[in-house]
Design a protein around this nucleic acid. Sequence first.
DNA 1: GAGCACTGC
Length: 854
Amino acid sequence: MDRRQLPIFEIERELIAQARAQRRLIVRAPTGSGKSTQIPQMLLDHGLLDEGLPRASRGRAVILQPRRLPTRLLAARVASERGVKLGSEVGYQIRFENVAGADTRLLYETEGVLLRQMLSNPRLDGVSAILFDEFHERHLYGDVTLARALQLQQTTRPDLRLIVMSATLPSGPLEDYLSPCAALEAEGRLFPVAIEYIDRPVDFDRTPAWEIATAEFERVCREGDPGDTLIFMPGAYEIARTVQALGNSAAARGRIILPLHGELPHADQDAAVTGYDRPKIIVSTNVAESSLTIEGVKLVLDSGLARIPRFDPARGINTLLVEKISRASADQRSGRAGRTAPGRGVRLWTEREHAGRALQEVPEIRRLDLSEVMLTLRAAGAGDLREFHWFEPPEPRALDRAETLLRDLGALDAATGAVTELGRRMVGFPVHPRYARMLIAAESFGCVRAVALIAALTQGRSLWMRKPDKSTREQREEVLGEEGASDFFGLMRAFRYADSHHYDVAACHRLGIHANTARQVRALAGFFLDLAEKTGLKIEDRAPETEAICKCILTGFSDQVARRVDTGTLRCLMVHGRKGVLARESAVQDSPLLVASEVREVEGRGGELSVILSLATAVRPEWLEELYPGDFHEQVDVEYDAAERRVTAWRRRLFRDLALESRRVDPPPADAAADILAEEVIKENISLPRWDETTDQWIARVNSLAAWCPELGLAPYSEKDRWLVIRVICRGAVAARDLKDRPVTAAFKDQMDPSRRALVEKHAPEKIELSNGRRARLVYTEGESPHMALRIQDLYDVSDSPKIAKGRVPVVVEILGPNHRPVQVTRDLAGFWRDHYPRVKKEMQRKYPKHEWR
DNA sequence: GAGCACTGC
């Protein structure tokens, strides 16, 4: 096909005109428009790359790609279109591959490569234009390089041309960001895809996604052959279940069913992408959304779910939870059915729910750990990232978290926040700052070689195949052994095994080792070691001590130190009050103290979340004392043990906020013990057996009298006063049973000074003497008059209600019949005798003739 | 089923 028929040529003239007039350009064009291969050539062929440069000097265009493979493929295609050798006029650069020369005019490279180049060539000399391809994917480095390029354009490089190319990004925000700029659009070469939704919402917790997917596939099949089918699921487990469900379905008979996800060996991934003589069903994760293209797909079935990685800056841990994908992502997925012919997209959610979904995915800059990018940008001279001109600014908390970590690692000055000498050396290593710090520390621990390997082992996928079967596990143990102070040691042994077996796939497979990953680890480890050597780190000749390596790991992750809650459990407490569970497969099973190099929250069955600590290394408390002597302190914690029903005290030694050892202090400190028992009494977890009616009455008497006669200056008991008295009662006690015989009412009385106590006894007495010589008990209730209850016969000769509180408060009399049942309640006894007694007497006399009736 | 998407230097 003549490349001039590509849709992008429809806008060539305008594009060149705008590129001449403007330094910033947006080009929106979908897949298949030819933008990635043709626009760079247009710039070159129209002389735009040399414009404004001195005679005979030549500028180059850098075309940024998010992924390595397409970078190489695009460069190869453009080179062949131009009939030049790859690496001459057209070249590419990705990690470990630099196929470009001084005369390269069109340089395809990954976003991360440019960011590193910004460190060594801060003005980007020689670069006339940067093209940001697939910018809508919003990868971290894409956002970062664009922001930094704009900053350069506004300062030292006003001549730099920036062209942002995207497929689907909505217009508006990007124009505002790049303003002043021009925006152009071109058509794509995709076929229409008919979208269908299910009618009724489905709860995937009750009816799993694989069942719905299978049912929908069967439904589509009833309408005719759907052709090659691509099904999107969030992860490997869901994929396995879907494959299983389809295998049991008659509709899928005669079709090849293939899983596809990143953990699969290369051969299996290739199997999913190749064509067969039979129709196929691919069940895939997000790899098939943009990284891998499967030709000939006619039907896409989309669960609408994906596992999305995030960094939680509040807790400083990574999460990987199943989330609903955005509308843009759903369109991208269904678009996979329209690459070669019109297709069909079936979505396992309702149209109504679709309307409520997010327009775009949250960009990486808003959900990933920023410490590495922060250090690189700061070292490249980008200044304060809070002031940086972001397309979308990162969360302030994420910046804070990154800055804190960099200060803790010593990369930023604790006081000024400037990049330290150590920080500058760390930037030299293209790894997370934790590993960069470890590499530098490794020199003094004499283990640079080992740490270079460790750093390499943590990049990309794990060397271990996931969920090995029993025989694989046994083979592993037999060949590699299982001894381990660190999970890294297991990985290192696996790597050495793979290396000594020349990365033989079968030999590695026997032990459940990814041979290809091991090969990449070797390249990386060698690369890190070269860098270490160039930086001037002394590389040891002898094998390092295990302990040195463990200590070195600790320097990178001292904020992820964890302690077992108890022996025999995997549950751990971490510094900063976090909790987690040690990975079951970890080799560090016996050490009570460990450091986790990976902390990740994942979602289990029924949406249950758990924080898994992996890549663990055993730690001895002495190492912490040696490396962080200032981060220790001791404290005595006094607490109530509900099971023992007693106060216990522990002397604890803490590393930061994590208790490393606890020793019981017996007896516990008396004051604190009394306080805690008193609190438990207030909370009614412990009772005071001798707290009785007289106690409550005493409190009611004092409080009532304080209200009736304020001039006496009595204070009513507040919550706090009671607490104080209870505390006195508890003094010297450590267990609930010590309180059994402690007097309570007396304690309340003793707490009051004698003159006041006498006032209470006088004006709010417990008992009152009546005019007929009898003594009656008074019952006090706060806010009410006191009561007394007496039989009529006991009230003879008491002509009127008695009064207390200096005669201000009449006692309410509950008059009882001979059967002790109330006859009348009155605060006016005189009125009773006069108005009611004659009638009462008549009635009662009949019922109780033997009693005295006056 | 105790639990792991995808990139990139």
